[in-house]
């Protein structure tokens, strides 16, 4: 068979139409997607304000690492790290992570101190949709630092049925 074989082309066209239907039918099951309870950018802002209060939120010092393209939103690897000497006088006290479009904006809030040696942690999180993730770090001097990333979530093809 060659690439330009007419019969094959027809078969391919039919295959496309059918599989488009399959993808359409299949692309529905997202475990966190319950519309009315989704966090909005506003509720994320509120959750951040809850931590930060009236203090200014500075860009920098903290770095959020998430793969740019996510294979499955059920377990997205995430690492947050901060530039800090982690000494008694100058260390990271807490790191919080938030999302924009999950049902609830809070993801994790970690408390650490000079004994950590390195201001960094990793976990795996759920992302219901393509969205923004924000990390906020609180330093021992009371300042807050932030980083944010935009992530794209793709969908699984073979799904759970009956």
């Amino acid at each position: 068979m060659t690439r330009d074989d007419g019969k094959l082309q027809r078969t391919r066209r039919r295959f496309l139409a059918e599989t488009a239907a399959l993808a359409g039918a299949a692309g529905i099951a997202l475990p966190l997607a319950v519309e009315q309870t989704s966090a909005t950018p506003e509720s994320m802002r509120a959750a951040i304000k809850n931590i930060v209060g009236e203090a200014p939120l500075n860009k920098g010092k903290v770095k959020l690492d998430v793969p740019a393209l996510i294979e499955n939103g059920n377990a997205v690897p995430l690492t947050v790290s901060c530039e800090s000497p982690m000494t008694q006088d100058d260390h990271v006290k807490a790191i919080h992570v938030f999302t924009e479009k999950n049902p609830q904006p809070n993801v994790i809030g970690a408390r650490l101190g000079p004994r950590a040696g390195r201001a960094s942690f990793s976990t795996r999180i759920r992302l219901a949709d393509t969205q923004k993730i924000v990390a906020v770090a609180q330093m021992s001097d009371g300042s807050f630092w932030t980083d944010e990333v935009e992530v794209v979530v793709t969908l699984a093809a073979c799904l759970e049925g009956s």
Partner: peptide, 20 residues
Amino acid sequence: MTRPAAVLFVIAVLGAAAAA
């Protein structure tokens, strides 16, 4: 999510090589 997913897929498979 459903529509864009379907569209993506059509675009993706259009570029497929001949049947093996």
